[in-house]
Amino acid sequence: RGFLEKAAVKKMAKAIMADPNKADEVYKKWADKGYTLTQMSNFLKSKTAGKYDRVYNGYVIHLD
């Protein structure tokens, strides 16, 4: 289950990176699912340092 969630989160993160207008909708879905910042950090780990920082930081702001 965790692997599928991670894959889904990364897919949506890539969608945000391609079209930032989708961010609020995606952040709301993640918040509704109760994803914590720790979970998001783990889901968005990448071999490329900083690749998903913008998405993660946007989610931090959304939760605030």
Results as ranks from 00 to 15, higher is better:
49 A>H: 11
59 Y>G: 00
43 F>M: 11
5 E>M: 07
6 K>H: 10
13 A>I: 03
44 L>C: 03
10 K>E: 07
18 A>N: 11
60 V>M: 12
61 I>G: 07
61 I>Q: 14
46 S>V: 07
28 K>T: 09
47 K>H: 09
32 D>E: 14
58 G>Q: 04
11 K>H: 08
10 K>T: 08
24 D>M: 10
61 I>R: 15
38 T>R: 11
37 L>T: 08
11 K>I: 09
22 K>T: 09
32 D>P: 00
27 Y>C: 02
51 K>G: 05
30 W>E: 00
53 D>L: 07
5 E>V: 10
42 N>W: 15
5 E>P: 05
23 A>M: 06
61 I>F: 08
55 V>P: 02
6 K>E: 08
63 L>E: 02
35 Y>L: 07
51 K>T: 07
6 K>I: 13
14 K>W: 09
59 Y>R: 00
14 K>D: 15
15 A>G: 05
51 K>W: 08
8 A>W: 14
50 G>Y: 04
43 F>C: 06
47 K>V: 07
64 D>P: 03
45 K>R: 11
63 L>G: 02
7 A>K: 15
38 T>K: 11
10 K>D: 03
24 D>C: 15
39 Q>N: 05
60 V>S: 08
55 V>C: 03
5 E>N: 08
57 N>C: 15
24 D>T: 12
18 A>K: 12
6 K>S: 11
13 A>D: 00
27 Y>R: 00
45 K>W: 09
42 N>D: 13
38 T>A: 14
49 A>S: 11
2 G>D: 15
46 S>D: 15
54 R>K: 14
34 G>C: 08
2 G>W: 15
45 K>N: 09
43 F>D: 02
24 D>F: 12
57 N>F: 13
49 A>C: 13
61 I>M: 14
6 K>P: 05
32 D>A: 14
62 H>E: 02
23 A>I: 04
7 A>M: 14
13 A>M: 03
63 L>R: 03
3 F>T: 10
40 M>L: 12
45 K>Y: 09
32 D>S: 11
40 M>D: 00
44 L>E: 00
30 W>V: 00
24 D>G: 11
40 M>I: 15
49 A>I: 11
39 Q>T: 07
2 G>Y: 15
1 R>V: 15
6 K>R: 15
13 A>E: 00
19 D>A: 05
55 V>D: 00
17 M>H: 04
7 A>I: 14
6 K>Y: 11
19 D>Y: 07
3 F>A: 13
50 G>H: 09
60 V>D: 03
7 A>S: 10
21 N>S: 15
48 T>R: 10
1 R>S: 14
42 N>I: 11
64 D>Q: 15
52 Y>Q: 02
43 F>T: 03
64 D>S: 15
8 A>F: 10
43 F>R: 02
18 A>L: 11
3 F>D: 14
33 K>N: 09
2 G>C: 15
7 A>E: 10
43 F>P: 01
17 M>V: 06
51 K>A: 08
36 T>Y: 02
14 K>N: 13
43 F>L: 08
47 K>D: 14
46 S>Y: 08
5 E>R: 08
32 D>L: 12
27 Y>F: 08
27 Y>D: 00
60 V>A: 14
42 N>G: 11
3 F>L: 10
57 N>L: 13
24 D>K: 11
58 G>W: 03
54 R>P: 10
21 N>V: 08
26 V>E: 03
33 K>S: 11
59 Y>V: 01
10 K>A: 05
1 R>N: 14
17 M>A: 04
51 K>N: 05
39 Q>H: 07
39 Q>W: 04
51 K>R: 07
48 T>K: 11
5 E>L: 09
5 E>I: 12
37 L>R: 07
31 A>V: 07
60 V>H: 08
31 A>S: 10
50 G>V: 04
25 E>K: 08
60 V>Q: 10
13 A>K: 02
24 D>S: 10
4 L>I: 10
29 K>P: 00
26 V>H: 03
13 A>Q: 01
25 E>D: 10
20 P>C: 10
43 F>H: 03
48 T>N: 10
15 A>M: 13
3 F>V: 10
11 K>P: 02
52 Y>A: 02
7 A>L: 15
23 A>Y: 02
7 A>W: 15
38 T>V: 12
29 K>W: 10
14 K>C: 12
21 N>L: 11
64 D>N: 15
40 M>T: 02
14 K>G: 07
51 K>P: 05
61 I>C: 14
58 G>I: 03
45 K>E: 11
56 Y>I: 13
12 M>N: 06
59 Y>K: 01
1 R>W: 05
51 K>H: 06
57 N>G: 07
3 F>R: 14
52 Y>K: 01
47 K>R: 10
38 T>I: 12
9 V>P: 01
6 K>D: 06
21 N>P: 05
37 L>C: 07
64 D>Y: 13
22 K>E: 06
36 T>P: 01
48 T>E: 12
46 S>A: 06
48 T>D: 10
16 I>P: 00
7 A>T: 09
21 N>G: 10
21 N>Q: 10
19 D>V: 04
26 V>R: 02
53 D>T: 07
23 A>G: 06
20 P>T: 05
11 K>R: 14
64 D>M: 15
39 Q>A: 08
9 V>Q: 01
17 M>E: 04
23 A>L: 03
11 K>V: 08
48 T>C: 12
33 K>V: 09
58 G>L: 03
47 K>I: 06
50 G>Q: 05
43 F>V: 04
63 L>C: 07
8 A>V: 10
53 D>E: 09
22 K>Q: 09
54 R>I: 11
34 G>D: 03
7 A>H: 12
1 R>Q: 14
25 E>P: 04
6 K>T: 10
26 V>P: 00
23 A>W: 02
27 Y>P: 00
61 I>W: 09
28 K>P: 03
12 M>A: 11
4 L>H: 12
27 Y>T: 01
23 A>H: 05
51 K>D: 05
40 M>V: 11
53 D>V: 05
50 G>N: 09
33 K>G: 04
56 Y>H: 03
44 L>D: 01
30 W>H: 00
17 M>C: 09
56 Y>W: 06
52 Y>H: 02
38 T>Y: 10
36 T>N: 06
42 N>P: 01
57 N>I: 11
9 V>S: 01
14 K>F: 05
47 K>G: 13
46 S>T: 08
52 Y>L: 03
44 L>H: 00
10 K>I: 15
60 V>R: 12
14 K>S: 09
17 M>G: 02
16 I>A: 06
16 I>Q: 00
12 M>K: 04
8 A>P: 03
34 G>A: 05
20 P>V: 06
2 G>F: 15
28 K>W: 04
5 E>A: 09
35 Y>E: 00
59 Y>D: 01
25 E>W: 10
23 A>Q: 05
16 I>G: 01
13 A>S: 03
47 K>M: 07
23 A>E: 04
17 M>R: 04
2 G>I: 12
39 Q>R: 05
35 Y>M: 05
51 K>Q: 09
62 H>R: 02
27 Y>Q: 00
30 W>K: 00
39 Q>F: 04
24 D>Y: 12
51 K>S: 05
29 K>I: 15
46 S>N: 06
37 L>D: 04
62 H>I: 03
26 V>S: 03
49 A>G: 09
62 H>Q: 03
44 L>N: 00
6 K>W: 10
33 K>W: 14
40 M>Y: 00
47 K>N: 12
36 T>C: 05
25 E>G: 08
63 L>F: 04
11 K>Q: 11
46 S>H: 07
13 A>V: 04
30 W>G: 00
10 K>F: 06
52 Y>P: 01
26 V>Q: 04
36 T>D: 07
15 A>P: 01
9 V>D: 01
25 E>C: 15
7 A>Q: 13
28 K>H: 10
31 A>T: 06
40 M>K: 00
57 N>D: 14
22 K>N: 07
13 A>W: 03
31 A>G: 04
1 R>M: 13
7 A>Y: 13
10 K>S: 04
9 V>H: 01
8 A>H: 12
54 R>M: 14
52 Y>T: 02
30 W>N: 00
17 M>F: 05
43 F>G: 02
56 Y>N: 01
22 K>M: 14
34 G>P: 08
25 E>A: 11
29 K>F: 13
57 N>K: 11
46 S>F: 06
56 Y>S: 01
12 M>C: 14
1 R>D: 12
33 K>R: 11
29 K>S: 13
48 T>A: 08
18 A>M: 11
18 A>P: 00
37 L>N: 04
4 L>G: 12
11 K>S: 08
41 S>E: 10
64 D>K: 15
6 K>F: 09
4 L>Y: 13
40 M>G: 01
53 D>P: 01
59 Y>F: 05
59 Y>Q: 00
62 H>Y: 15
53 D>A: 08
7 A>C: 15
41 S>G: 10
53 D>I: 05
44 L>K: 00
26 V>G: 03
11 K>C: 15
4 L>E: 11
63 L>I: 07
34 G>S: 04
62 H>W: 15
2 G>P: 11
8 A>C: 15
64 D>L: 15
57 N>Q: 14
51 K>E: 12
32 D>N: 10
30 W>D: 00
24 D>I: 10
58 G>Y: 03
26 V>I: 14
1 R>T: 14
52 Y>V: 02
